[in-house]
Design a protein around this nucleic acid. Structure first.
Length: 207
DNA sequence: TGCCAGGCCCTCTTTAGGGCCTT
């Protein structure tokens, strides 16, 4: 059974963009929210059994030396599978993180019961005037305090949590929506961008 | 810094192409 009032916001660092092309996870970070309050965190480097490129070392600050000392992906993903058991999931550009979560869990013959919602798709609808919808830009745009330590899994998860809460708050304040269940954001994200404000106004009237 | 892929989304569209996001 999936918990109704909790959500896990997660972020992977990886060796590249595509698990279908042999790319692997190298770090997972996640924050568990219960009714908008952080109640737990998860962070672990994992050894993918292959060297990462200098681009990834520079991009993430995660070096091959750091990964040599890390637990194997299988061990970390077993622990992470326990952490997300029964929880709904959020990520910034969720299709990316979902592909790696599915690939890494499939490798250890595990699955999960929650479903994903995407903070990028929500932000494209809610903050249509933002310069772009990269995580860092949205954090700055919404004036969330930041130290700028992006491209590490837990930091990006923490920033995504803050953005997620700002978006929920904006929906509540601007549209008078008292309760915003997880499924509401999933419906929002399936609503065409062009008509999303009319859709929100209708939801406000009927809520 | 970019490329690799895949999903979303726009448009000079739908018999398609390209930009945006993620590492």
């Amino acid at each position: 059974m999936v918990m109704a009032n909790t959500v896990v916001v997660l972020d992977f660092e990886t060796t590249g963009l595509s698990p279908d092309e042999g790319d692997r996870a190298i770090e997972i970070g996640a924050v568990k929210l219960a009714r908008g309050v952080v109640v737990d965190r998860f962070q672990a480097l994992m050894n993918p059994g292959q060297r990462v490129s200098s681009f990834i070392e520079d991009y993430t600050g995660i070096s091959n030396a750091m990964l040599e000392d890390a637990a194997p992906c299988a061990e970390v993903m077993h622990r992470f599978g326990d952490f997300i058991e029964g929880e709904n999931l959020v990520a910034h550009n969720a299709s990316f993180d979902k592909r790696f979560l599915d690939a890494e869990l499939t490798r250890i013959s595990r699955s999960y019961s929650g479903s994903f919602s995407c903070s990028l798709l929500a932000a494209r609808r809610i903050f249509q005037q933002a310069p772009n919808h990269q995580l860092g830009t949205l954090v700055k745009y919404t004036r969330i305090p930041s130290t700028g330590d992006y491209h590490r899994a837990l930091y990006d998860s923490e920033m995504t949590v803050k953005l997620w809460l700002v978006m929920l708050s904006k929906l509540r304040d601007q549209y008078g929506l008292s309760a915003i269940p997880f499924t509401f954001i999933q419906k929002l994200n399936k609503t065409p961008k062009k008509s999303v404000f009319q859709w929100l106004a209708r939801q406000a009237k009927t809520s």
